[in-house]
Amino acid sequence: DVEPGKFYKGVVTRIEKYGAFINLNEQVRGLLRPRDMISLRLENLNVGDEIIVQAIDVRPEKREIDFKYIP
């Protein structure tokens, strides 16, 4: 289970104008929005990159997770 405030290693699987989709595993995916990136820009991410993200909002009923990147 993903818990708000905890850090997780994930893989960038898709990049859109509104953010990057990060997979923690095959069943768990969330969104990293540009506003939640500190010292990292969306255009510097590539599909396949491994990054450490912090879960900031977890909505299991909608199967949605918002992430934050903190270097």
Rank of each mutant, 00 (worst) to 15 (best):
E43I: 11
E50L: 15
M37V: 04
E26V: 13
M37Q: 03
N23R: 10
K68I: 07
A55G: 02
A20H: 01
Y69T: 04
I70E: 12
R29M: 12
K68C: 07
V47M: 08
A55Y: 03
V53E: 00
R59G: 04
V58L: 06
K6C: 10
F21N: 02
Q54I: 13
K17I: 12
Y18V: 07
D49G: 05
K9R: 15
E26R: 15
Y18M: 06
E3C: 09
G10P: 00
R63Q: 14
E64I: 11
V11Q: 09
I70N: 11
V58I: 11
R63D: 12
F7G: 04
K9A: 10
Y18E: 06
K68S: 13
N44C: 10
L45T: 02
F7T: 07
I52E: 07
I38G: 15
G30I: 03
I52V: 14
L31R: 04
L42N: 03
R41C: 08
N46W: 14
D66C: 06
L32A: 01
P34M: 08
D36C: 06
M37P: 02
I65Y: 09
I51S: 00
N44R: 08
D49V: 06
G48P: 01
N44D: 15
K17D: 11
A20T: 03
D1R: 15
K6P: 03
L32V: 03
G19Y: 05
A55I: 14
P4Y: 09
F7K: 07
I65M: 05
T13A: 10
Q54A: 07
L32P: 01
G48T: 04
R33N: 03
K6V: 09
K62P: 06
G48R: 05
I15A: 00
E61H: 12
I15K: 08
Y69P: 03
Q27T: 15
I52T: 12
E43L: 08
I70D: 15
L32T: 01
G10M: 04
N44A: 12
I56N: 05
P34W: 10
R14I: 08
E43C: 09
N46Q: 13
I22N: 00
D1L: 14
V47K: 06
V53R: 00
I15N: 00
K17H: 13
E50C: 12
N44F: 11
G30T: 02
Q54D: 01
K62T: 12
K9L: 13
R59E: 04
R14Q: 13
R59C: 04
R59N: 08
G5D: 06
D49K: 05
F21W: 15
V12C: 03
F7A: 06
E43G: 11
N46E: 12
R29K: 12
Q27H: 15
G48V: 00
N23F: 09
Q54R: 06
N23V: 09
E26G: 11
I56C: 06
M37H: 03
V53D: 00
Q54Y: 11
G30V: 03
I38C: 09
G5A: 05
T13C: 06
V53Y: 00
